[in-house]
Amino acid sequence: MFGGLSFDICPGQLVQIEGANGAGKTSLLRILAGLSRYGFEGRVERHAPLLYLGHQPAVKAMLTPRENLAWHVAGEADFGAAAIDAALARVGLYGYEDVPSHALSAGQHRRVSLARLYLSNSPLWLLDEPFTAIDVDGVAALEERKAAHVAAGGAVVFTSHQPMRGNYNVRRLCLRRGLL
């Protein structure tokens, strides 16, 4: 799909991977995360724990948002009820903590998974189309959260077709026909 790719991601960087549909944005992100290991030749060195949010929000319809975060399969710390409620409030799910997730919309499922951005202490975030199904206010809040994470010494790699709305210092990687 692509070749000749070589880059570093350093603390404090906000990296946007761009490219047409099918250019390999998701594949690149999955290789970075370590989910694709058999299909590519090359080397990925990871020096920090990472948080990966894929296309699917990994939200169980039969669990409430609070349970989804408390029992998350990603194996992060026990966050505690107060921290989880605060994170859900930050993503606009105040009052929905105990509603079964099957009663929530697609955008709200996405918001439950985005709440992990307020809980996790992983320095490297890999976000695949994080703006999908998120409304305008949500996008602004998410952009702010990413900028704050980068300012605090973290790094964010995300795929998106839209340029960020706010005035942020974004490094762009553009995949075109397998080249950078």
């Binding site: 995360a33 929000p57 990994a58």
Partner: peptide, 13 residues
């Protein structure tokens, strides 16, 4: 189907 499996594979445990 819902993406939880990816997250499980990425868990540090």
């Amino acid at each position: 189907d819902d993406g939880s499996l990816e997250q499980l594979l990425l868990a540090p445990q």
